[in-house]
Amino acid sequence: MNEPDELDLSDRVMMGDGGVSEDSDLATRIGRLVRERPYGVLCTQSQSQPYGSLVALAATDDLTTFVFSTPIATRKYRLLSECDHVALVIDSRSGAPAELMQVEAVTATGRAHVVPPGPDFEHWAGLLIACHPHLAAFVRAESSALVRVEVVRYFHVCRFQEVRQWVPSRTT
């Protein structure tokens, strides 16, 4: 006899908030996280030295591109200029130690490009400002650079150690 489960609880259903359950696909979960937490740690590197910076960001609906703004006199801008391989980490922490198993995080790996002035700039700046209206002046400042990150892959972490990967595909 194939040894049966003694009690099957699989008929019980639990849903998370906002209709996004743990059964939702990664795109839905990552999209929600980015909408609810539009901040992330930008990871850069140069000459074997990694570096991390917190940035305010926005993402396209298809999650293939992030955009953020940075003053050009910053270390992160210099590092970006030297190496365009970057990662972004976005997470749902509130900081309480007991919430470890509830924290959700994504690491997006990809390549950064500075957006030159022109129609493209308006498009990407509009996306970022729509998400962070109070940053409009900062984004349009002469000393700021607008950077878009083309995402190659996402690593999604929940329950401390459960990791899944997802490669976004462009809708246009």
Binding site: D5, E6, L7, D8, L9, S10, D11, R12, V13, M14, E22, P97, A98, E99, L100, M101, Q102, R159, F160
Partner: peptide, 22 residues
């Protein structure tokens, strides 16, 4: 004892409905 964190670590390892009685 900070046992609340331990309890949550145990119970949130996976969804409760995915946990077998054992």
């Amino acid at each position: 004892s900070r046992l609340e964190s331990l309890v949550r670590m145990e119970l949130d390892r996976k969804r409760f409905e995915d946990m077998r009685w054992e």
